[in-house]
């Protein structure tokens, strides 16, 4: 039951993009088309899940037993950077068009604060291994949900009569703000 609550919380209530405001860069950058938004979501979900697992292992098997908690941030950066490299190689091998579509945003997952935030929040909440996996996967799904919704809205926005000065980033930020407000409505779900 606890796991379900963590999952729902990560997807809807404490959504990384719309509650913590982490990972805004790809959220705005890759949300012009639904296709690439889905791909980005999958890539982030993948990286998030693996990061959660590996950073839990490092945190609980190395850092905590040897009382090296202050190395958390440095070692998590190492984990994330290596994993993104791995994912990049993997996608390039498996699907060159997807590699092209994600473009610069794939290496940018490295510096995506959502991933770092995930590892740190999981450590802060002292989640067990299973909880960490569910939390990482749920956060990825939450990110995917947010970015795909955003892409859908932005595709429709192309047809809308947006005032000249709000076109592009302006209207995107307004939409993101309204979405964040809407998602805050989920806070009542888990008390």
């Amino acid at each position: 039951m606890e796991l379900v609550a963590i999952f729902i919380s990560a997807v809807l209530v404490q959504n990384f993009v719309l509650y913590y405001f982490l990972g805004i860069c790809p959220f705005l950058g890759v949300s012009k088309k639904i296709d690439s938004a889905v791909s980005m979501g999958i890539a982030v979900t993948f990286v998030m899940t693996i990061t959660a697992v590996v950073s839990w292992l490092i945190n609980n098997l190395i850092l905590i037993p040897y009382d090296l908690g202050y190395l958390q941030i440095v070692s998590f950066i190492l984990v994330i950077a290596s994993l993104v490299q791995l994912v990049e190689m993997f996608i390039r091998k498996i699907s060159p068009p997807l590699y092209q579509a994600l473009g610069i945003y794939l290496p940018l997952i490295t510096t995506n604060c959502a991933i770092m935030g995930l590892a740190l929040i999981a450590a802060l909440n002292e989640y067990s291994f299973a909880e960490t996996v569910v939390f990482g996967f749920g956060s990825g799904i939450g990110f995917t949900l947010a970015i795909v919704l955003m892409a859908g809205i932005r595709e429709q926005l192309d047809l809308a009569d947006v005032p000249e000065h709000l076109k592009g980033a302006g209207i995107a930020l307004i939409v993101a703000g309204i979405m964040a407000l809407a998602f805050n409505g989920f806070i009542g779900m888990l008390t």
Binding site: I58, I62, Y66, L68, L71, V74, L78, S82
Partner: peptide, 12 residues
Amino acid sequence: PILTMTALGFLF
């Protein structure tokens, strides 16, 4: 910490 980070770095 130096040993830990070096070891982790080599591992990855």
